[in-house]
Amino acid sequence: MTALTETERPAPTISRWRHFLVGKVAWMPVLAAVVILVIMLVAGQAYFGRFVTPRILSSLFVDNAYLIVLAAGMTFVILTGGIDLSVGAVMAFTGMLAAKLMSTGVPAPVVIPLMLIAGAAFGLIIGVMVHYFDVQPFIASLAGMFLARGLCFVVSLEAIQVKNPLVLGLQSVKINMGDWYVTPTVIIALLLVVGATWVLGYTRFGRTVYAVGGNEQSARLMGLHVARTKVLVYVVSGVCAGIAGLLFTAYTAAGYSLNGIGTELDTIAAVVIGGTLLTGGSGYLIGSLVGVLVYGVIKVSITFLGADASWTRITIGILLLAFVVVQRVIVARANRR
């Protein structure tokens, strides 16, 4: 009614520099993880002398390739605000399945897709329970974990050796670049990280993952495919567990039912240390990669110290707690605003 008297009041412009900073706030936790990694490497170098060497840095990737893959899948799940406790067991199961099939002469090109399908099936079951039946994620995935772990023993009670040259080659082939080296497992893991980063950043599915984690209700009101996304993240995590099963089998040259007990905890710890909020909605895959490297450095340092291997879990636990408390404080502050 008073359209004529309307004044064009421009919104106050905030300086570009502040925008730059503000936009990068979500990267701060990743940066924190990088800083921790660097400090640990520097401290290790100062204490042990020969610590930051190409060989050791290479081995960080080679020894933890499976964990990088698991962490990538877990990042999807945690970004939606869920959790997947089944990854360690599913990894062990797919490894067992592969070892068993290959020992009966099934060729690797058939076995490998089967591993991924098995992982996807576990993810699908968990996802459907979580979304369609409102089962809490940790219960659903705990059930998935037990199912997978039990099925391992159905496949075989004993460890099964793997002799397939294609699978073993993933680990044994070393590509040297001076003192640096990589194995095909590392290449697979890093390609997966790059691919998954792309998916999270440049597809509607990826952005919906963030949206669901930010506020599921809002995402639904915006008309996004919440149901599909929530189920799919568990499938992604399951497939990653399948790939990790392949890498781990190559690494240990055997399928064994007790493989990867507690790995789900290492994975969650790596993802959280890498800056992904457990409440969902914030985090980056590259952070999870850094988180895995932090885990790897802790493990190597403890070996170097000659200390008990159990210190690894304790240190990781303390680090996880520290990060969770800091996250909690950040979230509480954000809510007060």
Partner: peptide
Amino acid sequence: DLLPNLSVAENIMLGREPRRLGFI
């Protein structure tokens, strides 16, 4: 009902972002 963890552009365009070859 917006998503504080995403950018302004995304909050406006989420679900109907222009895509090229399937990528945003």
